[in-house]
């Protein structure tokens, strides 16, 4: 069974005078351990799709099965639970809590998971070490560079051991050198066995992934392996399910 199964997904925004079809019958399946980039021009529906996958939003119609659970049947509280345990979301604008140090930012999902203070602290520390910020735990967001902030956000996404790591233009606010470092971190996380889905409109960022899906006007117009997929560093975890 695939990790993500999207079937005939529509998302319609009713803007009064006209209806905006942000998603227009999307079909998409993502297997465990995949490294997927979603591409497309601005307004093609990438973020809308990511928000649906991340259970931040629900489709107007269609079915979404995540890790065996039919998401469209869940209520608000259950969706919050899925976001907490199954999903790690990384945003373009980092979305860290201001005036809150890195450790506490990373701890946040664990609070809602109901973990003890001690365990939260321990896991947050490990997650920060994993993204290379072991020495910046007590820094607040405004004391960190853009790349470091995104690392904190990635640590927060990882801290609950989610089934899937989602990133909507994670390098959109970073310079090219920092972008490259962040993408190497994603590569690393993928190699370690994480399923990664990221949105980008930059072709060289997309080339980090193994599979590339292109959206246009809310529809999947192409779905292909990247050049890298044929390379030698392909991990066993991402072996095609045939």
């Amino acid at each position: 069974m695939a990790l993500i199964e999207l079937h005939d997904i529509y998302k319609v925004y009713d803007m009064g005078a006209e209806k905006v079809h942000a998603l227009n019958g999307v079909e998409l399946t993502v297997e465990r351990g995949e490294y997927l980039a979603i591409m497309g021009s601005s307004g093609s529906g990438k973020s809308t799709l990511m928000n649906l996958i991340g259970c931040l939003d629900t489709p107007s119609s269609g079915s979404y099965v995540l890790n065996g659970t039919a998401v469209q049947e869940l209520d608000d509280t259950q969706l919050a639970g899925i976001r907490n345990k199954e999903i790690g979301f990384v945003f373009q604008t980092f979305n860290l809590l201001a005036r809150t140090d890195a450790l506490h930012n990373v701890e946040l999902p664990l609070i809602y998971a109901g973990l003890s203070r001690q365990e939260r602290r321990e896991r947050a520390r490990r997650a920060l070490e994993k993204v290379g910020l072991g020495s910046r735990m007590t820094h607040q967001p405004n004391e960190l560079s853009g790349g470091q902030r995104q690392r904190v956000a990635i640590a927060r996404a990882l801290v609950n051991d989610p089934s899937i790591l989602l990133a909507d233009e994670p390098t959109g606010n970073l310079d090219s050198t920092t972008s490259e470092e962040i993408m190497q971190l994603f590569d690393e996380l993928h190699r370690a066995g994480n399923t990664v889905v990221l949105v980008t409109h930059e072709p060289d960022i997309a080339e980090h992934a193994w599979r590339k899906v292109t959206l246009r006007d809310g529809k999947v117009t192409s779905d292909q392996a990247t050049a890298r997929a044929t390379g030698s560093d392909r991990p066993a975890a991402a072996a095609p399910v045939s």
Partner: peptide, 16 residues
């Protein structure tokens, strides 16, 4: 508002 959005995104329920 954004803080609330962040909390909800990482799993805060309405009641939280």
């Amino acid at each position: 508002t954004r803080e609330i959005g962040v909390r909800k995104a990482v799993g805060a329920r309405r009641q939280d």
